[in-house]
Design a protein around this nucleic acid. Structure first.
Lengths: 65, 65
DNA sequence: CGTTTAGGTAAAGTATCCTTTACGTAAAGG
DNA sequence: CCTTTACGTAAAGGATACTTTACCTAAACG
């Protein structure tokens, strides 16, 4: 599952640390997410959409990978 | 996390068994999902959106429960 | 130089999604 | 009655999301 979390985070001028804290997860989780090491829970996906002000479909692409 | 999977399934005239097979998960997973026993993976949420022809945000409500 | 900041890897443990199996119940039809 | 269909519960196990800790690299800055 591909995503553009890293790009969105950059646009919002956030560090991985700051994003992790905002989401309520560990920094490792953010790193692994951005690296595409696993697919997040739906709950985390919703939180990301809330933080970046966009829909889940705009952050994740279920087709690729 | 609340959802209206049961309603969507009914509108599509599918049994839990049929939906499970379409999604590629077990019937137990569908039952537990509809009962709100756990939050699905993002991957499963995308599949549900594909089956019912709607967006994830239309199937799940992260606010409640 | 030494320190701080940001990003990264690796490994072990915990929590939870999902499966599998077995069994229960109620309605519908023969 | 008996069987089938659809929905449900319970429990044990496997797979994976997520945490925690420790350590590494490179850039920026005094």
């Amino acid at each position: 599952m591909k995503n553009n979390i890293k790009e969105n985070r950059a646009e919002h001028g956030m560090t991985q640390d700051a994003l992790a804290e905002t989401l309520g997860v560990s920094r490792q989780t953010v790193i692994s997410l951005e690296k595409g090491r696993y697919n997040p829970s739906l709950e985390l996906a919703f939180k990301l959409g809330a933080v970046f002000g966009c829909r889940i479909e705009d952050l994740f692409d279920p087709e690729e990978d």
